[in-house]
C-alpha cells in the first residue's frame, strides 16, 4: 500500500512534468529535452533548476531527468505516466473543503473554544522544572560551569 508520501511523489515526479513536456511528446523530443536539461543543469542555469507540478514547483536534478527519460523509453511505463499527466502540471487550486463543497461535519461544525494553555502546569502537574545553568561567558556549551 502506498503511503501519502509515495502518492505525492508519483504525482510530482511524473516524467512529463520533470521534462516539462506534454504527454503526447514524441520519443525524439523526449531524448532531446532530456539532453538539453542535463546540459543546463550542469551549467547551473536557474531556469532549469525547478519544474512545475500540481503540488507546486519541485527541484529538478540530473538524476530525476535521467530517470524520467528512462521511464518514457518503456512504452508500458510511459502509458501509465501519460495517464497520470493527463491533467498537466497546473497546480491544484482550492482546498479539500472546496472539493467537498464544505459539507464535511468537521468543516461545518463551529470551532471548539480555545483551550487553557498550560493548564496542567497551572494545576501543579507536569515535570519539575529544574533551573537552567548559565553558560560561562567564554563557553558556548550550555550547562557547563
Amino acid at each position: 500500500m502506498s503511503d501519502p508520501h509515495d502518492a505525492a511523489e508519483r504525482v510530482a515526479d511524473n516524467p512529463f512534468f520533470v521534462l516539462g513536456l506534454p504527454p503526447d511528446a514524441a520519443a525524439r523530443d523526449v531524448e532531446r529535452e532530456a539532453q538539453k536539461l542535463i546540459g543546463m543543469l550542469e551549467l547551473g542555469l536557474a531556469e532549469a533548476m525547478t519544474y512545475a507540478t500540481p503540488l507546486g514547483p519541485r527541484p529538478r536534478t540530473t538524476e530525476r531527468v535521467r530517470a524520467a527519460a528512462a521511464v518514457l523509453r518503456d512504452p508500458r511505463r510511459r502509458l501509465v505516466a501519460e495517464l497520470w499527466a493527463a491533467r498537466g502540471p497546473a497546480a491544484v487550486t482550492g482546498g479539500p473543503a472546496a472539493v467537498t463543497g464544505g459539507s464535511d461535519a468537521g468543516a461545518a461544525a463551529s470551532p471548539s473554544p480555545a483551550g487553557w494553555v498550560g493548564a496542567l502546569a497551572i494545576g501543579g502537574w507536569g515535570p519539575r522544572r529544574h533551573p537552567r545553568l548559565q553558560p560561562r561567558p567564554d563557553d558556548d556549551r550550555e550547562g557547563h560551569t
Binding site: 502518492a7 493527463a86 479539500p96 472546496a98
Partner: peptide
C-alpha cells in the same frame, strides 16, 4: 466557504486526477 476549485477541462480523467490530488492533500 473556500472558493470552489477551478473546473478542469479535458474530460473525466483530468478531473479525477485533480480531485484525487486535492483529496490526498
Amino acid at each position: 466557504r473556500p472558493a470552489p476549485m477551478a473546473a478542469d477541462g479535458g474530460g473525466p480523467l483530468p478531473h479525477a486526477i485533480a480531485v484525487h490530488t486535492a483529496a490526498l492533500a
